[in-house]
């Protein structure tokens, strides 16, 4: 696994040569333009392989082999729930989906992070304040609870790049934004037939 990662890093560096010089400059500029504040430390400006590969301005030619290898690496790194249980409590999941706080310099780090699903997705049809950057997930539970569906949905929440490299969605599991239990609760919010996501609007 380590060898694979190292290999990908080398390919990545080679393919990014065209904007590596600029990338160094940008990092220096950012270093001089931002100041750490509370939990938002300067280390957050350093990019990992996914962030670097996905920072190409629109229209920039991309190395598809490198991107495919990176996506494969992300898929292999997904951690499924240790006890094999994917579904938690949909009511708690609703709170996670609504809560937009967490990891901002202005947030209390002792409080749990939110998933802020509603910022980008439509979920329960009764909630009108939903964003449109992501697809509507209303009625998501109709897809059923097969093992394949559970694993697919978990993976999407854990690390969206495992399926769709350079998706706009945060990596809620891989980046430690949500806990395993919170992810299970969101899974239930999406898939439980009793969840408002899967009920007709009142």
């Amino acid at each position: 696994m380590k060898a694979l990662t190292a290999g990908i890093t080398i390919i990545l560096n080679a393919s990014l040569m065209a904007w590596t010089v600029a990338a160094d400059e940008i990092e220096a500029v950012l270093h001089n333009s931002f100041v750490a504040k509370n939990q938002a430390t300067m280390e957050r400006l350093e990019r990992d392989a996914v962030q670097t590969a996905c920072s190409a301005p629109r229209g920039m030619p991309l190395d598809n082999d490198m991107l495919a290898a990176l996506r494969e690496e992300r898929l292999n790194a997904v951690v499924l729930p240790a006890d094999g249980q994917y579904l938690g409590d949909w009511q708690r999941g609703a709170e996670v989906a609504t809560n937009g706080r967490g990891l901002q310099s202005s947030d209390d780090p002792t409080q749990p992070n939110g998933g802020n699903c509603y910022a980008c997705h439509q979920l329960a049809p009764g909630e009108v304040a939903y964003g449109t950057l992501g697809p509507s997930l209303t009625g998501y539970g109709a897809r059923g609870q097969s093992q394949a569906m559970l694993q697919y949905t978990w993976t999407k929440l854990w690390d969206t790049h495992a399926y769709n490299l350079c998706s706009h969605m945060p990596r809620f599991g891989a980046q430690g934004i949500l806990t395993e239990q919170q992810l299970k609760d969101v899974m239930a919010y999406l898939l439980d037939p009793a969840s408002p996501v899967n009920q007709a609007a009142e």
Partner: peptide, 20 residues
Amino acid sequence: SLGEEIFYYRAGPHDFSCAT
């Protein structure tokens, strides 16, 4: 040009850039 590069620069725990 620098502004355009920074606009697309993804970083932080949520991988957000301006472009997101």
